[in-house]
């Protein structure tokens, strides 16, 4: 069972991202679970959503995720605002929406060398594809393109199919944003991992 935690701010589409990601894994024959942090959401406040992925027929649990295998961060300001790396297992991916290169990000935020880092400028990509507004771009589909590239699953094909089915609006623009993010993701795998 793989556990993924998605960090965003209320209104950024973190919950929808969890549902799209789960559906893309489901298309690959996996058993999945996607759920929001069960709380009262406020626009702009830090929020989290969760995805579990496992083999069909394997035993799952119905709890929050405390020790994720990987994390996805929709807003780079969260890296210093909340402890997004809390409980993250060694060797896990940290996929971040930022214009910075992974090397710069690691240095600036102080990401320990036991984690793999992928960055993508999901905000610029979202704006280019007219997703959301300049004040509040919808980056959830673009960042999933980066996750697919970094983690190697779900495949871009299944991700794009899930986006087309699940995106509340502009399915083609969202799919195009994910594809562009997939192609422009920058990756850092420290030697220790």
């Amino acid at each position: 069972m793989i556990e993924i935690r998605i960090h965003g701010r209320g209104g950024q589409g973190g919950v929808v991202a969890s549902e799209i990601l789960a559906k893309a894994f489901f298309k690959e024959g996996k058993y999945i679970q996607a759920f929001p942090h069960f709380g009262v959401e406020r626009r702009g406040a830090p929020v989290a959503a969760f995805v579990r992925v496992g083999e069909p027929g394997s035993l799952f649990v119905r709890t929050n995720i405390y020790e994720p295998d990987h994390i996805i961060v929709l807003d780079p300001t969260l890296l210093t605002a909340v402890n997004v790396m809390e409980g993250l297992k060694p060797g896990g991916w940290i996929v971040v929406n930022t214009p910075q290169d992974p090397e710069e990000l690691v240095k600036e935020v102080g990401i320990p060398p036991m984690y793999k880092v992928a960055t993508v400028d999901a905000t610029a990509i979202a704006l280019k594809h007219r997703l959301g507004s300049k004040m509040s771009p919808i980056v959830n589909t673009a960042i999933l393109g980066a996750f697919s590239r970094a983690f190697g699953a779900p495949s871009l094909e299944n991700l794009l199919a899930a986006i087309r089915e699940e995106a509340p609006v502009k399915p083609e623009e969202n799919a195009a944003a994910a594809k562009e993010a997939y192609e422009s993701t920058k990756i850092l795998i420290p030697q220790e991992v």
């Binding site: 489901f26 759920f35 069960f38």
Partner: peptide, 11 residues
């Protein structure tokens, strides 16, 4: 159950 089923997506 609230949220644990009502708001959780699964196959």
């Amino acid at each position: 159950d609230a949220f644990i089923l009502s708001h959780t997506s699964e196959p």
